[in-house]
Design a protein around this nucleic acid. Structure first.
Ligand SMILES: [Zn+2]
Ligand SMILES: [Zn+2]
Ligand SMILES: [Zn+2]
Ligand SMILES: [Zn+2]
Lengths: 138, 138
DNA sequence: TTTGACCTTGGAGTATACTCCAAGCTTTAT
DNA sequence: ATAAAGCTTGGAGTATACTCCAAGGTCAAA
């Protein structure tokens, strides 16, 4: 059994994070020592690794909560459930990327239009573009 | 002069948003009517359009605050200032896109690996991948 | 005059994921 | 014995951008 600090160290997360996850029903300590200290077993370690990996592919803690309920009772869920869950996330990510690509395109236009010199910004094309409706697409 | 509701309507934002921007020093009402109502002039309208456009290219309200201070006193700033500000934002956006592309790639692998059938999720490759360190890169 | 639409304020709530703090107990080492 | 390190709790703070609410004043029309 690991104490909270040991598990945190092993996973490179903070003890605060572990307590935060417990408070938010993602992962409870396996048990408590006589002195009240949290104790975690190997399974808890694996669950934390699951959470960390799920975060690594973009799932939010809330979504991970959903994944964990499925993981806990796999027999009550189908591959279709898991796959559509993941596809939804992918769609979300794609939407966000599209939005950022749009920002990127506009910002590149702005950067390209500005001389970047040390003179006064009174003639700056970036500011003009943001001031005038049309300037940005010119 | 526009009352808050008129300006909000014209710009397709909520009156709450306008009050929020005032509270956060982005745009104060031009003046107040005798009854205490906020009044906005054409310049305020243009400033709001500036804010909206700046949001449209990805700037946060905090960053827009910075842009507005430059806009208000262009003579004290250079094109270099504005350009580097914009370039920083672009870098930030690019970083975020890269992170999301990474999520996207992983999610696509996961989706591709899962059969998506109606059987029990006990054999689901998505869950296995999140459970095992190595499975995700296989 | 009364109704409805519009305005005011301060403050709380939402979502996300922690991070930090105070006050205090436990354990280990010196 | 005492200090340092580690643990406990509840709760506040951070960043972002609103959104909603209550309680109440204002204004124009019927
Ligand atoms: Zn220039
Ligand atoms: Zn410029
Ligand atoms: Zn399957
Ligand atoms: Zn599957």
């Amino acid at each position: 059994m690991y104490r909270i600090g040991e598990l945190a160290e092993k996973l490179s997360v903070s003890t605060d994070t572990l307590r935060y996850y417990e408070k938010h029903k993602l992962l409870a300590a396996t048990s408590r020592a006589d002195n009240g200290y949290r104790l975690y077993n190997e399974e808890a370690l694996r669950v934390m690794q699951f959470i960390i990996r799920a975060k690594g592919v973009g799932f939010s803690l809330n979504e991970i909560n959903g994944l964990l309920s499925i993981k806990i009772d796999k027999a009550s869920h189908s591959c279709a459930d898991v796959k559509s869950f993941t596809e939804q996330k992918l769609t979300q990510v794609n939407d966000k990327i599209a939005e950022l690509q749009c920002f990127k395109g506009s910002l590149e236009l702005l950067v390209a239009a500005c001389c970047g010199g040390e003179e006064e910004a009174t003639h700056c094309s970036i500011l003009s573009a943001l001031e005038n409706v049309d300037a940005i697409n010119k």
